[in-house]
């Protein structure tokens, strides 16, 4: 099965991004393909590397980054949603005159067309978060 994953909530406030991570890791572990994970709404906050959760808690952005590196997973953060919420890569930061970027390794910023494409290409598009 080829899955597309959509994550609509940020880490920690809602369990949805944990569930999305666990689903994605399990699907890959079972040999399924994950075409793309698309982060929208507050879900873009999964893509910042500047979060510092307590040491005895999980660090979701780091977990996503590690999963992406292991499986060459495509983690896409919506550019419009990310700009609103201050999730920037180096190019975006430069373009908008911001002093820093915060995108986590393995994530890339792109447009909503990537979400539609995931819906077209995947056998199942699974949405996490409200």
């Amino acid at each position: 099965m080829k899955y597309g994953i959509v994550v609509n909530t940020g880490p920690y406030t809602h369990q949805a991004s944990d569930s999305a991570y666990n689903f994605t890791a399990a699907a890959l572990g079972k040999g399924h393909e994950v075409f793309r994970v698309f982060f929208y709404h507050d879900g873009v906050n999964n893509g910042t590397r500047l979060g510092v959760p307590p040491q005895d808690d999980r660090n979701l952005p780091e977990k996503w980054s590690a999963l992406a590196e292991k499986h060459r997973l495509d983690l896409v953060v919506c550019v419009a949603a990310a700009q609103r919420r201050g999730v920037l890569d180096a190019d975006e930061a430069k373009r908008h005159g911001k002093s820093a970027d915060n995108i986590a390794p393995g994530f890339r910023i792109s447009g909503l067309g990537q979400l539609i494409e995931a819906g077209i290409e995947a056998d199942r598009l699974v949405v996490f978060g409200d």
Binding site: Y40, H41, A80, A81, G111, L112, G113, L115, I116, E117, G119, I120, D130
Partner: peptide, 19 residues
């Protein structure tokens, strides 16, 4: 909430895909 606005943004972008 922002859901209505960001939904509409998806619809407008998605319209270019001829689905």
């Amino acid at each position: 909430t922002i859901y209505a606005l960001e939904s509409l943004e998806v619809v407008l972008i998605g319209a270019a895909f001829d689905q």
